[in-house]
Design a protein around this nucleic acid. Structure first.
Lengths: 186, 186
DNA sequence: ATTAATCTACCTTCTAATAGATAGATTTCT
DNA sequence: AGAAATCTATCTATTAGAAGGTAGATTAAT
């Protein structure tokens, strides 16, 4: 792994662990073992680093979507939820949520990128839901996009709640309930 | 309003607007029109101010719960949701969520207080759901606490999502869906 | 030889926090 | 009632450290 990649990876850890405004170039430099000025070489200002983290994340999610495009809707949804259950297990929050919290204090390029990321996720889940509805595996009352928003917001919110209460079981129960609700009779 | 109250109010605005780590004593002192050292007089360290904000918020919520204890479950739930729709309209996130994002970087007293706040909210909603279930107005598949967690996390997550996408309609649709889902036939 | 990646060294501004002073209000002592 | 002591809320002035950022030198890779 290149130094640049290490920096991005570490910045992502901070952003998902405690937020964009809780780490400094100095924090990263200490851990990676370089000087802060070397970070500035790769990322002129902090916002560039934040942007790179979001871009990287989006790239991976797109890749994952591609790789699983042939699965059935239930598997796709389970995979999607598993991303968040893993975050919960590692006591992280999702990147979009983390950035959203401090959004008004963020630089514009970050706001734009996070909109892109969030838009992709909503679209992805909406597609899974529509596919599942058409094949009769899923059923829900609202339109697919609203349902997608509800599912995504539930997992985002639960990442926050379960990190506060420190009871991972609560998170698991909620994930189970989401899947059951979708596959409910009729 | 006393200076101390002004300080708390402003800190709460910051915490819900952009997070605990995005404001400084200096920011507050400028707006309130006092020196930073005067803030230290009221709140020796920043964590004391953060704690005061959460305490104040919890106090108000408890009061609101008391005041509405005689309403029917549907009204109670609508009231609860309206708290969040108002936040959404003002483009704030909820205090618990805001703190949760940066939790590992927070002082212990803040972690404890936010646990108290979050615990109260979960309990409150759980009680509303149980009451509604008993009187046959609400119906849901899971246990009341899990359902409460789902509702709370949905609104918390939606505050984040709709602030990113900047589409308040999405939020409204989701709130409507939550209430409809609870009152669904049978 | 050129470019890429890193370093040293520095700057400026901000941040949280402390110490000590002051002026006025309130309480307590005699 | 008058004096003494204490409390409240603020100030000025200062600190140590961290923040983000810049300039220029040095080393390593192609």
């Amino acid at each position: 792994m290149t130094t640049k990649e290490s920096i991005i990876e570490l910045a992502e850890k901070y952003m998902r662990g405690s937020g964009y405004h809780t780490f400094s170039f100095h924090d990263i430099s200490r851990i990676v073992g370089i000087k802060t000025s070397s970070i500035h070489y790769h990322f002129p200002v902090k916002a560039d680093l934040g942007e790179a983290v979001i871009k990287e994340r989006l790239k991976r999610l797109k890749q994952l979507k591609e790789e699983t495009s042939e699965s059935d809707p239930v598997k796709k949804m389970a995979l999607f939820l598993s991303i968040y259950s893993r975050m919960g297990a590692e006591s992280n929050v999702c990147l979009a949520g983390s950035v959203a919290t401090g959004l008004p204090a963020m630089e514009e390029k970050i706001r734009n990128r996070i909109q892109e990321l969030s838009g992709f996720i909503v679209e992805w889940v909406t597609e899974i839901l529509e596919e599942g509805e058409q094949s009769g595996i899923f059923s829900f009352e609202t339109d697919a996009k609203t349902k997608a928003l509800m599912i995504i917001s539930t997992v985002m919110g639960m990442l926050q709640l379960s990190r506060i209460s420190d009871e991972p079981d609560e998170f698991r129960s909620v994930l189970r309930a989401i899947l059951q609700d979708l596959q409910k009779s009729r």
